[in-house]
Design a protein around this nucleic acid. Structure first.
Lengths: 216, 216
DNA sequence: TATAATGACTACCATTTGGTAGACAATAAT
DNA sequence: ATTATTGTCTACCAAATGGTAGTCATTATA
């Protein structure tokens, strides 16, 4: 069966409706990695999802490992951009800690795959992910930690909060809730997943109750 | 290179130091599944870890899927036994809710692979795991929910706690902290994992602060 | 217009995967 | 003592995997 090879569409860097091939690969890879895990996802399945052949995929990302890094990088890049904006004292209307958490929640809820991917990375490559978080974000979390300590001295926050540990716990709770909260709700429901909104509402309540001092 | 096949040890059901072959397989499978994931673990690697050949492994567990189910079953079985004991009003000395959470934490801290495996299952097979939790544990969590509501009426617990959602969140926090807390602590440390004990201490603080009413 | 670079393809390939077939030794049952 | 069962092994196998080689059309560059 000789090929024929009649037309061979070629995609330039210009966006023609669905984005660059490279972007589409990253999108499908994020989805499949987060849904089935890195090891559980074949390059073939990604190529199929994008609608190209495997070697075309490998042309854009020379190895599976390379693709993984780029997928992860896109998440990191987002936060390296966003964090300065969020933590800049632009509006002092609401608590900066809570607004940061809100941004965090929104980011992960907007696309659940992000949370799932992060959790998988933390499980699959703990040391590597530890190092990445440390390098990319520890300055920012130190800032938040200081902010938290100030709030403690001013009496806004509880004195028994352990700032650094609290920050870690909040992240664990947020990505945990988004990534596995739905399925975990099988504990209390026989019908279907508890709406994520409700879970997050309770999460926010827990965080606030364990953070703020009681003002009588 | 002809085999030789000089001795062929055979293991009976009797324990000869390291447990039955079947038990050793389950142990290594739990470890490898939780560390590398189901898809990331080959039957060969499990057989190597146990010190047998692959077909011997398949003799005991006819398929990889079958092995997975048995590994999971051993965790479920433990809690089906333990929960009645814990929730029985034996000692009313300490809060039953907190003592249950303590048992939960101890179980997962005792062997970190347990928490990692549960998280992986929740990610890899959300619907299936939802159903399993629902079938096996929802009666028990309903009991805890009622207990929580009683405590609310007596004024012990905060009125704004949403019992069912709170229970789900506590489980998410506990297994989240044990499974990914260490690596997540890269956010605030450049050196090494934050000791799990500290993370858990803050976790317990958060839970208690968000559960108990302030008694002035 | 000729030439180089890009991006897609077909056809492979070595390795690993989950799993099977069948031989064989040790133990248990008759 | 003979037979059946159990558990382990060696030797395979088809399918899938990550990746390579090389072809060819389109686009950009000279």
């Amino acid at each position: 069966m000789q090929a024929g090879r009649e037309f061979l569409m070629k995609e330039t860097d210009l966006d023609n409706g669905h984005g660059t091939v490279k972007e589409r690969i990253l999108k499908e890879a994020l989805y499949l990695f987060s849904e089935r895990g890195f090891e559980g996802t074949s390059l073939q399945s990604i190529a199929d999802a994008v609608g190209i052949q495997k070697p075309s995929l490998i042309y854009h990302f020379p190895s599976k490992e390379d693709l993984r890094r780029h997928v992860l990088e896109s998440l990191v890049a987002y936060w390296k951009n966003e964090l300065p904006r969020i933590l800049t004292p632009a509006d002092s209307s609401s608590d900066r800690l809570v607004s940061t958490m809100t941004s965090l929640i929104n980011f992960f809820v907007e696309d659940l795959n992000r949370a799932r991917l992060v959790v998988r990375e933390l499980l699959d490559r703990p040391e590597e992910t530890f190092a990445l978080l440390s390098e990319q974000f520890s300055p920012w979390t130190r800032l938040i930690g200081d902010y938290l300590r100030m709030g403690q001295q001013s009496g806004l926050y509880r004195k028994d909060v352990a700032p650094e540990l609290f920050i870690v716990q909040v992240l664990v709770m947020v990505i945990g809730t988004v990534a596995i909260g739905g399925a975990t709700s099988g504990l209390v429901s026989t019908e279907s997943y508890t709406p994520r909104g409700l879970l997050i509402k309770e999460l926010v309540r827990i965080v606030q109750a364990s953070l703020y001092s009681e003002q009588p």
